[in-house]
Amino acid sequence: MYARCTRQSLSFFLTLFMILVLALAGCATPASAPAPASPTPPPAEAPAQEAAMPASIGDVARAEDIALTPEEIEKIRGMKLRFGFNTNHRTDDFINLLIKGGEDTAAQYGIELLVSEAGFDANRQLGQIEDLVQQKVDGIFMVAVDFDAISPAIEKANEAGIPVVIVGGPPARGQVLSVMNSTSYDGCYESAKYLVDAVGGEGKIGVITIPLALKTIQERDQGTLDAIATTKMEVVGNQGVWRQEEALAAAENMITANPDLKAIFATWSLAVNGALAAIEASGKDIKLAGYDAEKAGFQAFHDGNPHLLALSGQQATVQGKAGIDALAKAVLGQPVASEILVPTVLVTRDNYKEMWDVLYPGITPPWEE
């Protein structure tokens, strides 16, 4: 009797257990089972910024490669475009020539150009670019104070579908249509090599740079140091400065600390001017070369200054035109190279008059004013 009852109880509990298992199986889909079929949703629309962002192709172009044809210029004239042109400062000839190249080209194409400058203030520039985005400009050409700090504004331009061409190096985040650069490494290497060879490749040399976190500035620094490394010269100072008076003080300190200093190399325009003033005030036979060929340097060549030997000049007006051309190409729906390179030219005592016409087209030289 006991055994029969136990078998009946066991049968009852097994049956109950199977019913519970089947019930639970009906309430959940095993991970390995295919999901239940559902109606196919309509294809999602691409985000507005992706649809509007112009194409950028991964190669390098020259300025002449992206020049607009007469037919393209006529199309652009009929579109009544507005471009923003924002620079990190406006205190040297390069920036002013860059703006001139952009303004002249925009005027030729019937484009309204909104020009602003940040005074080396990254936060100010961030606000300026965001303002251009709010104004719904058709394109932005800019020189960044800091490629990390400007990233949020670049991302907002991306969201709005506004193409951006940037001088010097890409932002840390966000996409740009193209990066505009001079051949910075080559320019500094060539000018610095000219200097160190002229002083015999031995002795002490100081270097004055600019502390900008940009790819093109890093390339200048590397080109300078690589040229010096080909000699037996000793770098006794390598200082970054923001302003001409700071360059003057840096050069004075180098000269005072090193009475036997033979040369100074400056990697940007105001550093060249400050270093030259310090050398002249010292009364010593110290030679100078640099990157950026500005009016003051050309005048020094014309006056026969014994200290200044060479300058590497950026073709700023060419870059300004190329920036507008690239944005116009993008508006027309054409792909643009991800990098645009404009070669530098070496300016010396022997060719400064010829090089003036290359770097300052249509502008009267200072010695003729």
Rank of each mutant, 00 (worst) to 15 (best):
Y2N: 15
R4Q: 12
F13C: 13
L14T: 01
L16E: 14
L20A: 11
L22K: 08
L22H: 06
A23Y: 09
A25Q: 08
C27R: 15
P36K: 09
P36A: 14
T40A: 08
P41C: 09
P43S: 00
E45T: 15
A48E: 13
M53T: 06
A55K: 14
I57N: 03
I57L: 07
G58N: 14
E64A: 15
L68N: 08
T69G: 09
P70N: 09
E72P: 05
K75E: 14
M79R: 10
F85A: 12
F85R: 08
N86M: 05
N86D: 09
N88M: 14
D92P: 03
I95Q: 07
L98I: 10
I99C: 05
Y109L: 15
E112K: 14
V115I: 15
F120S: 11
N123M: 09
N123C: 00
N123L: 11
Q128Y: 07
I129H: 05
Q134V: 13
Q134S: 15
K136Q: 12
V137Y: 06
M142S: 01
M142A: 06
F147W: 07
I150V: 04
P152D: 00
A157S: 08
A157Y: 00
A160H: 06
G161R: 02
I162Q: 02
V165I: 15
V167S: 11
G168I: 05
P171D: 06
G174F: 04
L177M: 01
S182P: 08
S184I: 00
S191V: 13
A192G: 00
V196S: 07
D197G: 02
A198Q: 12
V199L: 04
P211I: 10
A213I: 01
Q218A: 12
R220D: 01
R220P: 00
D221F: 06
T224Y: 04
T231Y: 05
K232H: 10
G240W: 01
E246C: 04
A249R: 07
A250G: 00
A251N: 01
A251W: 02
N253C: 00
L261P: 03
A263D: 02
F265H: 05
S269D: 11
A271H: 01
G283V: 11
D285Q: 14
I286G: 04
D292P: 08
K295M: 13
K295R: 14
A296Q: 13
G297Q: 08
G297A: 11
F298M: 04
F298N: 05
Q299N: 11
G304Y: 06
P306C: 13
P306Q: 10
A310R: 02
A310V: 12
A310D: 03
G313P: 02
Q314G: 12
Q314R: 15
K321C: 07
A322K: 11
I324G: 12
P335W: 05
V336W: 01
A337E: 03
E339V: 15
L341E: 03
P343Q: 04
L346W: 02
T348K: 01
N351A: 01
Y352C: 06
W356Q: 05
V358N: 09
P361M: 09
T364C: 07
P365W: 07
